[in-house]
Design a protein around this nucleic acid. Structure first.
Length: 546
RNA sequence: ACCCCCGUAGCUCAGUGGAUAGAGCACCGGCCUCCGGAGCCGGGAGCAUGGGUUCGAGUCCCGUCGGGGGUGCCA
């Protein structure tokens, strides 16, 4: 899909060399205003100083020197301070439809990132309860990003870090034990900072039904420990199921407990110590992160001799570094903003190249119902579970809505809007365009074309504009990967759908002369392929009727 | 106190340092003997603020104001 750009850049470079420029740098950009054409270059402005002539004069010279392939691109002349504008040749745009037929399910796939190894860690919710809607946004974003990276040829892995060790396991066990004891008639309180959710009571009920008062007869601390472990495993399984249902499959579930049993945290500590980056103060052990770009030093071992959460986290990230990825991406909630400098400093302290680590902060979501905020309070156990949301609005709407805003922006998720079957629902609007195309084939009693034919007849401006849109998929994928944000895909999908409706309104498909009808049916089919592909990268289905 | 994110149209948001800043809702005005009107065509209105960097800034840097969130040997 880049062949026009490659051709054009080369032609401009050669023309510049002929004018005496050595090692010219040519950048091509998309003009903001479509009236200026499809591609523009500022080459004349950039090289003005070196050539020693005003930009417009250079631009004129370039235009007359350049050798362009008329089947790919044509020059539209010089504009403004010295921009040179170009427009795709009709033949090239028509070939986009041909490409869609040829590539089908892999339309837009490139090898732009082939050879890159990328790891994306996301969700990583604590296994102390079911997944809530906060995790759902991370799941949608992380999984879509993974799909996009793969479509660009990268070797991309998704990973869930499971915090199945530490204080919270005990606390969880005590919480379960408290509920369990209450059911069996022994009054007991959920401990300070414990878990109050409905799911705890449900689990306790289940335990009573299956095991009777078995755990009441045990030493309470032993019972709590065992119950905590069981609850953790139960929750991990719930997480896995919820994510699978949400069309998210993790390549790896990395357990903190495995890290601990292999002593990896102390190994990391030892190396930090050997590198002279550990010091003691008030009985606690600090890592000298301030020497590696952070504003302060952090405790890794408390004065009680216990590791803080930071130490296993360091060990975990070190493990990821040593697995040899080019990019190690963490998608975290906005409360982790201090994490990047902190963790990057720790990695530097271990002697790693910390620039490989990226922390993406995903802003929160506000659930709305008809514009009114839905109250969420974790403390009171009134969290909205991910599964509840999916049951209500459906997977397609949920996945798409979570991508509608940039990750750096808080997201208002209106439940009623997501359920609405009308064009103000963005996911509906896009899926509708896809279904509408299908209905054209049905209505015309024609099968969807299997191969491209008569594409040269697609010369109407709405047809060509639609083809332009379809061409952009590869660009959009690259943009998403570069910004680590799949949001741009939803913008593109909406524009493709809108342009399809425009084309459809202006150009009759059925009841036109046979060859033109065939050509337009091909364009419809190509649009379907592109929509399917864009939706698939978002993890959203493309229904044929609705 | 410190840190992070965000201030673009009435509202929700787009906008890889480039030309006259774009959509969708909402509002106003058109278009159904016509393949799905769940659509199409047209209209008004905007970069919080003060500096700086640059040939060129909504975009990069610093300050101010406003909104949201977070933090101190818990995870």
């Amino acid at each position: 899909m880049k062949r026009v750009h490659v051709h054009l850049a080369r032609a401009i470079e050669q023309a510049l060399v002929q004018m005496g420029v050595n090692a010219p740098t040519v950048t091509l950009e998309k003009p903001r205003d479509a009236a200026h054409g499809d591609i523009a270059t500022n080459a004349a402005l950039v090289h003005s100083k070196q050539v020693g002539k005003p930009p417009r004069q250079i631009a004129d010279a370039l235009v007359s020197t350049m050798q362009l392939d008329p089947r790919l691109v044509k020059c539209e002349g010089v504009a403004g301070p010295g921009f040179i504008n170009f427009r795709f040749a009709d033949a090239y745009l028509q070939s986009i439809a041909e490409l869609a037929f040829k590539t089908k399910d892999s339309y837009g796939t490139t090898n732009d990132l082939s050879g890159k190894r990328v790891l994306i860690e996301f969700v990583s919710a604590n296994p102390t309860g079911p997944l809530n809607v906060v995790s759902a946004r991370a799941a949608a974003v992380g999984d879509s990003l993974t799909r996009i990276f793969r479509a660009l040829g990268a070797e991309c892995y998704s990973e869930f870090y499971v915090n199945d060790a530490g204080n919270q396991v005990e606390l969880l066990g005590q919480s379960v034990l408290a509920r369990y004891s209450s059911i069996l008639g022994r009054e007991s309180e959920v401990p300070e900072g414990g878990y109050h959710g409905e799911y705890i009571s449900e689990f306790a009920q289940q335990l009573v039904a299956e095991h009777g008062d078995k755990y009441l007869k045990m030493e309470p601390s032993v019972a709590a420990e065992q119950l905590g472990r069981m609850a953790i495993e139960r929750h991990i399984e719930m997480h896995r199921k919820s994510l699978e249902h949400f069309r998210v499959t993790m390549n790896q579930w990395f357990r903190e407990s495995a890290l601990r049993s292999s002593n990896a945290e102390w190994e990391a500590f030892k190396v930090l110590e050997q590198r002279g980056t550990i010091f003691e103060k008030d009985g606690a052990k600090f890592v000298r992160t301030s020497e590696f770009g952070d504003g302060q030093d952090w405790v890794v071992v408390t004065s009680q001799g216990k590791p803080t959460y930071f130490l296993p986290d360091i060990a975990y990230h070190w493990d990821k570094f040593r697995r040899g990825y080019d990019n190690i991406i963490d998608i975290l909630g906005p409360d982790h903003h201090a994490y990047l400098t902190k963790m990057a400093a720790a990695m530097s302290a271990l002697g790693e190249d910390a620039t490989r680590l990226e922390i993406m902060l995903l802003q929160h979501i506000n659930l709305l119902r008809d514009g009114e905020p839905v109250k969420m309070s974790k403390r009171a156990g009134q969290i909205v579970e991910m599964d509840e949301l999916l049951d209500e609005v459906g997977i397609d709407a949920a996945r798409y809505f979570f991508l509608l805003r940039r990750t750096s922006t808080p997201l208002d998720f209106d439940i009623e809007l997501a359920k609405r079957q009308s064009d103000d629902n963005p996911v509906f609007y896009v899926q509708y365009a896809h279904a509408r195309i299908e209905s054209i084939f049905k209505r015309g009693e024609v099968d969807a074309p299997q191969r491209p034919q008569h594409l040269e007849l697609l010369t109407h401006s709405e047809e060509l504009t639609l083809l332009r849109r379809l061409r952009e998929l590869g660009d959009v994928m690259n943009e998403c990967a570069f910004s680590r944000d799949p949001h741009a895909m939803t913008v593109w999908l909406r524009e493709v759908a809108a342009q399809f409706h425009r084309f459809y309104h202006h150009c009759r498909v059925l009841t036109t002369p046979a060859e033109l009808q065939t050509a337009r049916l091909c364009l419809c089919r190509a649009t379907q392929i592109a929509l399917q592909r864009g939706l698939a990268l978002c993890g959203v289905s493309a229904p044929t009727e609705m």
